[in-house]
């Protein structure tokens, strides 16, 4: 079973092996899928009901397609586990969280103290990304909505 050092949900870790996007579409009982950078997360939208785990692979942390994949899935209403895997360092952790990942399994072990610092790096945020954090513009205008 996958080791998921950073997990922000209380349900059980999904133990099913994540299959490729192509295989997932063909296997009507599969519940876990893995997206590679070149694959279209929207191909999964017809199957959100049976999905329990989406792994998004970052073969290299400088390829940011997985950030968009995560937001596409969350914006479409996906509420299952969204797990980032691959070449992930502490400096990517806060961005992954902001894009909707609620589980992170880096291929190399991260220092827990450094990771804790990294998750907490931003006191506030400028953008609304669907992660539940109110953006700074909302904080500035909480009393003035519709003003």
């Amino acid at each position: 079973m996958a080791d998921v050092p950073f997990r922000f949900r209380s349900d059980d870790v999904v133990a099913d092996p994540a299959v490729t996007v192509d295989a997932f579409a063909a296997q009507t009982n599969a519940t876990a899928v893995r997206i590679e950078p070149g694959e279209d997360a929207r191909a999964l939208l017809p199957f959100l009901d049976r999905l329990r785990l989406v792994e998004v692979n970052f073969p290299t942390f400088t390829d940011g397609r997985g950030f968009s994949a995560a937001r596409v899935l969350r914006e479409a209403g996906y509420t299952g586990e969204l797990r980032a895997v691959g070449d992930i360092g502490v400096d990517q952790l806060s961005h992954l969280r902001r894009c909707g990942f609620d589980a992170i399994a880096p291929s190399a072990e991260l220092d827990p103290a450094e990771a804790a610092t990294a998750f907490a790096v931003w006191p506030e945020v400028y953008q609304a990304t669907g992660d539940g954090r109110p953006p700074i513009w909302a904080l500035r205008h909480t009393a003035g909505r519709g003003k």
């Binding site: 950030f67 937001r71 953008q127």
Partner: peptide, 13 residues
């Protein structure tokens, strides 16, 4: 500027 600063989706374009 504010929107693009640390925009988490667009830091690895």
């Amino acid at each position: 500027r504010q929107w693009s600063s640390f925009h988490p989706e667009f830091l690895a374009l």
